[in-house]
Amino acid sequence: MTQAAARLRHFKNIEFILGIVLAGTMTLAVLLSPLLFPDGGEQINLAARLTRPFTDWHHLLGTDPLGRDVLARVVTGGRISLLVGFASVAGAVVVGVVMGLVSGYYRGFWDMLVMRFADVQLALPFILLAITFIAIVGGGLGNTIILLIVSQWVQYARLVRGSVLSLNDREFIHAAKAIGVPDIKILFQHLLPNLAGPVVVLMTLNVATNILLESSLTFLGLGVDPTIPSWGGMLADGRTYLQNAWWVSVFPGLAILFTVLGLNLLGDWLRDLLDPTGRTEA
């Protein structure tokens, strides 16, 4: 191992450390929020509205227009963002991987169907799809997650299909087929493990993207219930307060920034680690 390579690894670690510290801290805080803030920052106190941050130990990051504790709400609000981020990616992965496996492995009619479906999906601009979708079925947590799944499974399907196509001709698959291993077993035991790397990379980056998309939707008034604290909702509601009570939207904004940046750093680091050939681009 050359000195340069060792140094490279050292610098890689900076990306990893920064990523894990940012995303890890935020995730941990969010997961611990029921213990840290049992009331979930829901306590309205009109008398203490818009307290400035760092002036009152009970409200370290100040209070919002309804006198709720910003710190508690930021920490609790992360639950929605992370839930939307992870659940939508999980859904998209399941749908996308199955579709990709089927279309790449069986080819022919299924392949055509799935890929044309994917083309249609890719040709519809996301936000426009979102406003139409929400206008039909309404907003809310569940619908937001479904919307994100609908708009993102294609990435996984394409990625998996491409990989399956190139794996199909590999010797171990031929061998497995020859000795009569059932298709389903080949798909899940032999093909899937080989795809894990790029899929995990794409997932990490997508959780980051979806947290941002959720906040965009909420900003446009299409997102989740405003009574449930969420980062997107706090940003959107706080935007008109930026000039006289900056903390109402700056802290949730930083929460999004740190979490998403952490995930992006991790994704980038993972990509170099798991997917050196760069099958995933983001």
């Binding site: 309205i44 309804l66 809310g140 008034g221 299409l222 219930d225 405003p226 959107a236």
Partner: peptide
Amino acid sequence: GNDATFGEVTQAVASYLQMVGLTATIKPYE
């Protein structure tokens, strides 16, 4: 869903209803 001010008002209303023992939830629509 698009009326931020009224959203705040409703949350305050919900919290007052909470105080007399009702469980208020808010459902925003387009």
